[in-house]
């Protein structure tokens, strides 16, 4: 990318816009947390449990956030810092956003990141990232309350079944994510033997979580760290053997 384009992509004006949007993302969570505490008080649910839940969420997010941090620095170099900060604070992980930026360049008829990638192409990249995020956000804003109605219908008023329905959805979703990782690694291994690391990470993360969960039965304080510990073990095993 030319110095002119990179300077424009890092301009103060874009920082101001990004600060506003990141602030709203934070504000949304703060408002929902306040509402949660308020409603918990109204139904006599212990506030101490609420605090524990908030803390558990904060701790669990540390590990994966470090991964996001590292990927983000790479993206900053290619589309500028403020827009990366903005895009990675909302829907769309780095690969999605970089795909959108690349598609924008293609629509403008140039190669992303090449010397021909000019201010005009940058504007098409920005547009494509924004319109892509809109796809998810508008549908979620307009139809989420309907999804609750559908869930209630599928649940048929049976709280126990509703619990299993959520559990089955979670298992289906993570079954897909894990198999996708493993199949992807198997396909890459002939070219790149170290791709097996992803399989080691998956399997040892799984095993470690099983072991940590056993430990939490006698040490309940460990629960909020369980996923973080399992993730670290999975990562270490993969790094050591791949």
């Amino acid at each position: 990318m030319s110095p002119e384009v990179l300077a424009a992509a890092n301009a103060t004006g874009l920082w101001v816009i990004s600060i506003i949007i990141v602030f709203i993302v934070l504000l949304q969570s703060v408002l929902y947390a306040k509402l949660s505490f308020k409603v918990a008080g109204q139904i006599n649910y212990p506030i101490s449990k609420c605090r524990e839940a908030l803390k558990a969420g904060m701790i669990t997010a540390i590990g994966p956030s470090i991964a996001v941090f590292i990927v983000m620095v790479g993206m900053m170099a290619v589309v500028g810092t403020p827009i990366t900060w903005l895009r990675l604070s909302i829907i769309g992980a780095a690969p999605t956003e970089l795909t959108a930026a690349t598609v924008g360049a293609q629509a403008a008829g140039v190669e992303f990141g090449s010397p021909q990638y000019d201010m005009h192409a940058l504007s098409v990249s920005f547009w494509t990232m924004a319109i892509n995020g809109t796809g998810w956000l508008v549908l979620v804003a307009l139809f989420t309350h309907k999804l609750e109605d559908i869930r209630q219908k599928l649940g048929g008023g049976n709280a126990k079944w509703l619990g299993f329905l959520s559990l089955a959805a979670a298992l289906g979703c993570f079954g897909y994510l894990n198999i996708n990782t493993i199949v992807g690694a198997l396909r890459n291994m002939p070219k790149n033997p170290s791709a097996v690391g992803a399989i080691y990470a998956t399997v040892s993360g799984m095993a470690a979580m099983g072991a940590v969960t056993k430990l939490t039965q006698t040490r309940p304080w460990l629960k909020e760290y369980s996923l973080g510990i399992a993730m670290l073990i999975g990562m270490l095993v993969a790094a050591a053997f791949a």
Binding site: G63, I199, M209, L227, A230, M231, G234, L236, A239
Partner: peptide, 20 residues
Amino acid sequence: AFKNYTVPAIFGAVFCQFGM
């Protein structure tokens, strides 16, 4: 290690957590 392995390790761990 963070870039390549945290996400697969989390996916595995969460699958186990729900699976139990």
